[in-house]
Nucleic acid binder design. Sequence first.
DNA 1: ATTATATGTGAATATCTATTCAACTGTCAA
DNA 2: TTGACAGTTGAATAGATATTCACATATAAT
Lengths: 120, 120
Amino acid sequence: MSRNEFICDCSVIHQDVVDRTIKNMAEEDTFNKLAEFFKILGDTTRVKILFALDQNEMCVCDIANVLGMSKSSISHQLGTLRRSGIVKCRKSGKEVFYMLDDNHVKEVFEIGVEHIEHKK
Amino acid sequence: MSRNEFICDCSVIHQDVVDRTIKNMAEEDTFNKLAEFFKILGDTTRVKILFALDQNEMCVCDIANVLGMSKSSISHQLGTLRRSGIVKCRKSGKEVFYMLDDNHVKEVFEIGVEHIEHKK
DNA sequence: ATTATATGTGAATATCTATTCAACTGTCAA
DNA sequence: TTGACAGTTGAATAGATATTCACATATAAT
């Protein structure tokens, strides 16, 4: 993508750096999906749910009890996580068991923890 | 933390799983900081800025030109990233050069990209 | 000194989103 | 069939936040 596609309120100071950086930028779509992925992880409730599901699959009621929140709010969040492909579920009678679907989440989590430990 | 501290609108179905999971949950503070960290990464503009700064340090004007956005909005976002300890800056005359401060960001990014590539 | 440029920032607006509430579906048991 | 329970879902509300705008600050050049 070229810088001429954009409208900006200032002049370019270091043309070479700007040109090179623009040339190396990823696709717009990649940035959007990346931000979307991190946005999903950027909520305390969802972080707790994923941390819990990392230990064992669980039904909605049990998750609600672990977090001390309503079934409805947990169900809404599980829907968000499912639509993002981060968790999946399995029905068993009246209950629905949720589990992690994406092995990257665990890795991202660990680095995230390293980050906040390092910043202490 | 004990489950009795919480108010929930449903009964516990699998008491053993709930007890064990609660016992293994991290500190409230840890979840908050973790979510806060990912929330910072969960914005397209900030993702682009970090991707650009991963290549070279840059001044505000250059970043604005690379992204095709106003200096003001970029400055606001850089302030957010700086307060989160993810980028740092260095003054040189009228210009302020920003660079990555946290080596974890790069790792998290790479796994994030793997994630979205895997989901295609 | 004056002007131009690079950056920072508070307030306002528009948009997004997490939770609650109320209703609903589906399943099991009596 | 009836009731109880697990889970889902749309609408509403309240809170968060990204960008714009206008102005402020700081530095360099004339």
